[in-house]
């Protein structure tokens, strides 16, 4: 039999039907303001940590909401917890508490 060298390429699409809803369910309960985010990016613009690494509160909120939480702890740990993100947010999203909840919930899950 001939070998044609065909392989199945992994898709880059997010399969929203298969998304991991575990974290957003818990955080949505503890800090419902995560659903108010409109992705304007003012948090990431003012963020001190984001000036030095590729941390972005906006992207974290988006990642949690779309279930892309595989590497979330590494991202969340870049946060300095200064709370400036909250001060500039036009929707009153408690970004800091969202990140604290990620730490708490993911920490528990790790145990």
């Amino acid at each position: 039999m001939s070998e044609w060298g065909f392989t199945v390429i992994q898709t880059n699409q997010s399969d929203m039907d298969q998304m991991d809803r575990g974290l957003i369910a818990k955080i949505g309960n503890a800090e419902p303001s995560i659903f108010w985010c409109i992705g304007c990016g003012s948090c990431s613009a003012t963020c001190t940590a984001a000036q030095f690494n590729n941390f972005s509160p906006r992207r974290i909120i988006q990642a949690i909401r779309s279930g892309q939480v595989k590497d979330i702890m590494g991202e969340v740990n870049k946060c300095l917890l200064c709370g400036k993100c909250q001060l500039v947010c036009p929707r009153h999203v408690n970004t800091r508490n969202i990140l604290l909840n990620v730490k708490q919930i993911m920490g528990q899950d790790a145990i």
Partner: peptide
């Protein structure tokens, strides 16, 4: 002026 260019995902 500080903002995040959200389409490139980087603060500017």
């Amino acid at each position: 002026v500080k903002a995040e260019d959200t389409l490139s995902g980087r603060p500017m």
